[in-house]
Write a protein that binds this DNA or RNA. Structure first.
Lengths: 204, 204
DNA sequence: TCCTCTTGATTGAACGTTCAATCAAGAGTA
DNA sequence: TACTCTTGATTGAACGTTCAATCAAGAGGA
């Protein structure tokens, strides 16, 4: 049993997260990370991690539970009416990706997931599952007559996309932050717009 | 043989686009690009370009006219009712970013714009301008009583985001392509949903 | 037709640097 | 002593870039 100091390990991971999100995986050097972590020698990193890629993998590993956290207790959400479920979903989304941590994660994910192929598969699986779940939920609500019939695959992406735009504006295209509303306000408006847009039309 | 290629420059750029979009700027090597372009020596690239970064800059330079192409004749669009303008906008967006070229561009932009700081500024300017224009348009339509009052900055991002989700699904998270609707169909649904969601509410 | 000179394009070899990874030697502790 | 952690020095490979040499093709005389 090798008893690696867990705090030192985390310290290195925190530094790596920061450096990766700023320079990208390929441009970030072990030296950069060591300096950011306040280590006197880059060699120490190799006591806790076998190589540079494992740093990336360890960071992105946390993305799976984070993503799943967005869809808390899907069973419960599945039964609620759209007003409740969509708002819950939007708020989870904002809570997770609205933080600096979430933003850094997203940036690393967008830029460097290709450098961790085995994780790409995992995360892809989670994403697909979530989208499928959400589509199924929308279909259910349509069947119940609570939403108007349409292609649920598209509808799911439209809703998620409207939320994604907020995170992209605040964390990726940081020059679009100007004039950006509060995450809560934005989430409410996104939900409201989508919900109204999906209402069954009594007229015509 | 050796038909005095004046298109050699473009041939190199095409190869660079492909390699950059696949491996990212930092991980792509001059050798990779030379091989992709069918050159016998990487040195030849330096006859046409001063350095590796200039390849990236030359590629991303094309992004400015491409982006502006999305907002064709803003004056005309500005005057039309939402049904027309939003549909035009959505279709331009899809036309530009729905192609493989647009997808590759987007991926390079997302991953590697940081490696071309002088361009980041340019593109940021264009993006901001487009968002501002669109917000102003929405405000105008609200004032005209054609859309319900709301925060137009958020509304603009919500609409663009719903379109962005399509491109992200098809070109970035390629594992989400499955079940993806036709771009035309998707655009129509996105516009319809947003439009209905922004309608003035006569009831209540 | 033959020869010379010029120009743009192309090549393989090499240079200097960077970087991930390794190593051997310790420091601190139990 | 034995084990965990830490360090500066070192290694070997890969990379961007440079460079002298070469090639192919044309221009202009004689």
């Amino acid at each position: 049993m090798t008893e690696n100091d867990p705090s030192r390990r985390q310290q290195i991971l925190d530094a790596a997260l920061k450096v990766f999100s700023h320079k990208g995986f390929a441009s970030a050097t072990i030296k950069d990370i060591a300096k950011e972590a306040g280590l006197k020698s880059p060699a120490l990193i190799y006591w806790y991690f076998p190589n540079k890629q494992e740093l990336l993998v360890s960071i992105l590993m946390e993305l799976v539970p984070i993503l799943q956290q967005v869809a808390t207790s899907p069973q419960t959400l599945m039964e609620q009416p759209p007003e409740e479920t969509l708002m819950m979903l939007a708020q989870s989304f904002m809570k997770v990706f609205g933080t600096p941590l979430g933003g850094q994660m997203l940036r690393i994910f967008l830029s460097d997931i290709g450098h961790a192929p085995e994780l790409e598969e995992r995360v892809a699986g989670v994403q697909k599952m979530m989208l499928t779940f959400f589509s199924a939920y929308l279909q259910r609500q349509i069947d119940l007559g609570r939403l108007r019939p349409c292609d649920t695959q598209s509808a799911a992406r439209i809703f998620i996309g409207s939320l994604l735009a907020y995170v992209m504006s605040s964390e990726v295209f940081h020059w679009l932050r100007e004039g950006l509303a509060d995450p809560q306000i934005y989430a409410r408006q996104a939900v409201e717009t989508f919900l109204e847009g999906m209402r069954v039309r009594s007229d015509e």
